[in-house]
Amino acid sequence: MKPNIGISPEHLAEITQTLSHILADEYVLYTKTRNAHWNVEGPDFHSMHIFFESQYNDIAEIIDTVAERIRILGHYAPATLKQFLELTHLTEQSREKNDSEGFIRELLNDHESIILHIRGHINRLAEKLKDAGTSDYLTGLTEYNEKTAWMLRSHLR
């Protein structure tokens, strides 16, 4: 049964497609943050290990809420690695060293890329597609990524 929430089926499809791309980005970011957690080396290993763990736990919750938002809007969330890799605009990085600075720079770039991507959809969702709820949700998601980017950026000073 399709939701009867005042948004046309065509708009719901467009909204959930946008959310599917965001879900894929967050899932790839989650994997990259796990990689940093598992593989970071150096004199700051312990603190960075804990720092990255905190971040991937936050991102795991975000992944769940994005997928649930897609379901709330009556569509199925992508849920395979193949789908995520097709939908994401992030790339995997090949590293020569597993130092914290390298991981931080890479994750910072990804968070900022996600921020820009999401920011480009917030007004469109509210105004054109008549979905203030998802627009508001994405504003909150942008705030999380902005705060995380700030934390990552602060490590580089």
Rank of each mutant, 00 (worst) to 15 (best):
M1Q: 12
K2V: 07
P3A: 08
P3D: 11
N4R: 10
I5Q: 10
G6H: 00
P9G: 06
E10G: 01
L12N: 05
A13K: 12
A13H: 07
A13N: 10
I15W: 01
Q17C: 08
T18A: 09
T18I: 15
L19K: 03
S20K: 02
H21K: 14
I22Q: 09
A24F: 07
A24D: 05
D25W: 08
D25C: 11
L29C: 04
Y30E: 00
T31N: 11
H37T: 10
W38F: 05
N39G: 08
N39W: 15
N39M: 13
V40W: 02
G42I: 07
F45N: 12
M48D: 07
M48E: 09
F51Y: 11
E53P: 01
S54E: 15
Y56L: 10
N57K: 13
N57V: 13
N57Q: 14
D58L: 14
D58S: 14
I59R: 08
A60E: 11
I63H: 10
T65W: 06
V66Y: 03
V66H: 03
I70E: 02
R71W: 02
I72E: 06
I72G: 00
L73R: 04
A77S: 10
Q83D: 13
E86Q: 13
E86F: 07
E86S: 08
L87E: 09
H89Q: 13
H89R: 09
Q93I: 12
R95L: 11
K97D: 07
N98F: 13
G102Y: 03
R105N: 15
E106K: 08
E106S: 11
L107D: 12
N109H: 15
N109K: 15
H111Q: 08
S113R: 11
L116D: 15
H117T: 14
N123C: 08
A126L: 02
K128H: 08
L129H: 04
D131G: 00
G133I: 15
G133R: 13
T134I: 02
T134K: 05
S135T: 02
S135M: 02
D136N: 09
D136F: 06
Y137I: 00
L138D: 02
T139P: 00
G140N: 12
L141I: 05
L141P: 08
T142M: 12
T142K: 07
Y144P: 01
N145D: 12
E146T: 10
E146F: 05
E146A: 11
T148P: 03
A149R: 04
M151L: 11
L152R: 03
L152I: 00
L152P: 01
L152Y: 02
L152S: 02
R153A: 11
S154C: 09
H155Q: 14
L156Y: 06
